[in-house]
Nucleic acid binder design. Structure first.
Ligand code: FES
Ligand code: FES
Lengths: 148, 148
DNA sequence: ATATATTACTACCTTTTTGTAGTATTTATT
DNA sequence: AATAAATACTACAAAAAGGTAGTAATATAT
């Protein structure tokens, strides 16, 4: 359930890349934009490539691009991939996974609290974020025209 | 956002104690019931006492009882107390806290996904858990009568 | 060809979290 | 008073997470 800073970084990176329109994103560029430690960022980027989210190009002018369509990457998938399988359906009392036939005391409460969240994360793709971001930009531009 | 095993342990302990009817819970008893490492459990119990959830009694026949009414302890409070202030309202991209006037790309999505969860956790007290647990017991007993 | 700008790999260091050990203190029982 | 059963305190050890360093490999530009 989003235990890692690494997952946060991954979401930052993918979210950032999804909402901009560069042809290619180098680690150095992302480092400068996002303030994620250089070396750690690099490693994470290769990880994200290995996990099939990004595609890397070595050598000069190299960098990272998305390996799949933005519509195919939802936030829950990113979290699950980075934190190991099924972290989004773990028991709140630390049992590795919620067991339906032997639920813990918190099970009902936790299921209810958690499921809505997981649903929204699963239904939000990077493409959706891009859409929202662009709408925001348009709004800001219009505000600028109206106020100045 | 429930990053710690320690928080899980705390919920396990408090949830367990809330749903039973012992006069007093010793660390040793809780250790045996809950399988939380002995020494770590002890420390956590004194922590929970310092935080005002429990009240400890030293010496022989000593142990822990609740320091407050179960109705006054909700799950969000436990999580916040154990993980430091306001972990339940952190930004999903790792900014220390969600800032309304400078939201991140994920803000809207995350707020929506998170708020429902926090709401439920805040509205569930240990007293509610006790109620649910007792209802479960009653149901199981009735089932037993019907099926056997 | 060489220099340069990039990713890839491996090993290590640091910090945080989790877990353990030893000893002191408290209190009921005998 | 002695014993036993409990918590309290402090320091340390182990494991996991986060972060760094050095070097190799790759590919473009000149
Ligand atoms: S079994 Fe614990 S939350 Fe489901
Ligand atoms: S600012 Fe990031 S989730 Fe609110």
């Amino acid at each position: 359930m989003i235990r890692n800073k690494t997952t946060e970084y991954a979401l930052t990176i993918l979210g950032f890349m999804a909402t901009r329109n560069e042809d290619m994103y180098s680690a150095e560029y992302l480092h400068k934009q996002l303030n994620i430690p250089r070396r750690y960022l690099r490693r994470l980027l290769t990880d994200l490539s290995k996990h099939g989210f990004l595609k890397s190009t070595s050598g000069r002018n190299g960098g990272f691009v998305f390996a799949r369509d933005l519509k195919e990457i939802n936030l829950a998938l990113v979290i699950n991939t980075l934190e190991g399988y099924e972290t989004l359906c773990t028991c709140i009392l630390g049992f590795s996974c919620c067991i339906v036939d032997k639920p813990c005391i918190m099970h009902d409460t936790w299921m209810e609290a958690r499921s809505k969240m997981v649903e929204i994360l699963s239904n939000t793709t990077l493409a959706d974020l891009k859409g929202k971001y662009q709408m925001d930009l348009i709004k800001k531009t219009l505000d600028g025209i109206n106020t100045v």
